[in-house]
C-alpha cells in the first residue's frame, strides 16, 4: 500500500471512531442536558420577575416548585385574547401570578445578536408599561463585551423602564450607545438603558429585537394599558 493510501485510510478510521464517540456522548447525555436547559429557562423566567433572591442558592427542585406555583404558561392570539396553553397558534406568554392576581407578564425574547441569537425573558408589569425585569439565558456574544448582557448590572437597568409613552403608544426599550444620562435627552431617558462599551452592535441588534418582539405582543400590552387586567384562564 502506498503512503498516501495509508494516510487516507488512517484518517478515515480516526474520523469514524471519533464521530462514534461523539455521537455516543451526545445522545447518552442528552436527557440530562435537556433537563438542565429546561430548569435554566424556568430559573430565568423567575429571575426576570424578581421572584428569586439574588444571594440565595436555588436547587433544581426549588426552581421547579416555584415555577409551578407562580408561573402560568399561556398563549395569546393577534388580538390579545388568551388561548389555551396547548393551542397550536398564537404567541407563547408567561403570567406571573400571586394570590390569584396577575402581577406581570413575561415575554420570551428571541433576538438577533452579533454572533448568534440572544434568548431571554422580558417581564412587564400588569400596567402594560413598566418593565419589571430582563434576563438572558443563552447567547453567543463575546465574553466581557457583548457577553455583559447576562450580567446583573446590565439587566438591573431595565427595571422600571417604560415600553410606552404617556399617551400609550409603544416606544419599546432601547440600549443607549453609552450612558443614558449622557447621550439621551431627559424626556426619553425612561425608554433607554445604559449601553455596554465595546458592544455597540450587540446593543443595536438587541434594541431592534426587543422592539420587534414588543410590537408582536403589543395587543396584550395594549389591553392591559386600556382595560387594566387580563383574565387568568382556568388551571387545567
Amino acid at each position: 500500500m502506498s503512503d498516501a493510501m495509508k494516510s487516507l485510510l488512517f484518517a478515515a478510521v480516526i474520523g469514524v471512531v471519533c464521530s462514534l464517540l461523539l455521537t455516543a456522548a451526545s445522545s447518552g447525555l442528552k436527557a440530562f442536558q435537556q433537563e438542565n436547559a429546561l430548569v435554566d429557562r424556568q430559573r430565568n423566567v423567575l429571575k426576570s420577575v424578581g421572584a428569586l433572591e439574588p444571594e440565595r442558592k436555588y436547587g433544581t427542585d426549588d426552581i421547579k416548585e416555584l415555577f409551578a406555583a407562580a408561573i402560568k404558561d399561556i398563549r395569546v392570539d393577534a388580538n390579545g385574547q388568551v388561548l389555551d396553553a396547548d393551542a397550536a397558534s398564537g404567541l407563547p406568554l408567561f403570567l406571573y401570578t400571586r394570590d390569584g392576581q396577575v402581577q406581570s407578564y413575561i415575554v420570551p425574547v428571541d433576538s438577533r445578536g452579533l454572533w448568534g441569537r440572544i434568548y431571554g425573558y422580558l417581564a412587564i408589569d400588569n400596567d402594560g408599561r413598566t418593565v419589571t425585569g430582563f434576563s438572558v439565558y443563552q447567547h453567543s456574544e463575546t465574553p466581557g463585551l457583548g457577553g455583559e448582557i447576562e450580567k446583573p448590572w446590565f439587566q438591573q437597568n431595565f427595571v422600571g423602564k417604560q415600553i410606552a409613552d404617556p399617551e400609550g403608544n409603544l416606544t419599546s426599550v432601547g440600549i443607549a450607545k453609552g450612558k443614558v444620562a449622557e447621550v439621551i435627552p431627559p424626556e426619553r431617558r425612561n425608554h433607554y438603558v445604559d449601553g455596554i462599551s465595546g458592544a455597540t452592535l450587540t446593543g443595536r441588534y438587541l434594541s431592534e429585537g426587543l422592539k420587534d418582539i414588543l410590537k408582536a405582543y403589543e395587543p396584550v400590552s395594549r389591553r392591559l394599558r386600556d382595560e387594566g387586567h387580563l383574565e387568568i384562564p382556568e388551571i387545567s
Binding site: D3, K6, A25, L29, Q33, N36
Partner: peptide
C-alpha cells in the same frame, strides 16, 4: 501507526473529541 504527514490532524482530532466529551459531561 500515525503517518507522519497527517500527524497534526490526527492529534487535533483526538484532542477535539476529548474536549467535546468533557464539555458535554459538564453541560449534563
Amino acid at each position: 501507526a500515525i503517518p507522519r504527514n497527517i500527524r497534526i490532524i490526527v492529534e487535533v482530532a483526538v484532542i477535539a473529541t476529548l474536549v467535546i466529551i468533557a464539555d458535554e459531561v459538564l453541560k449534563a
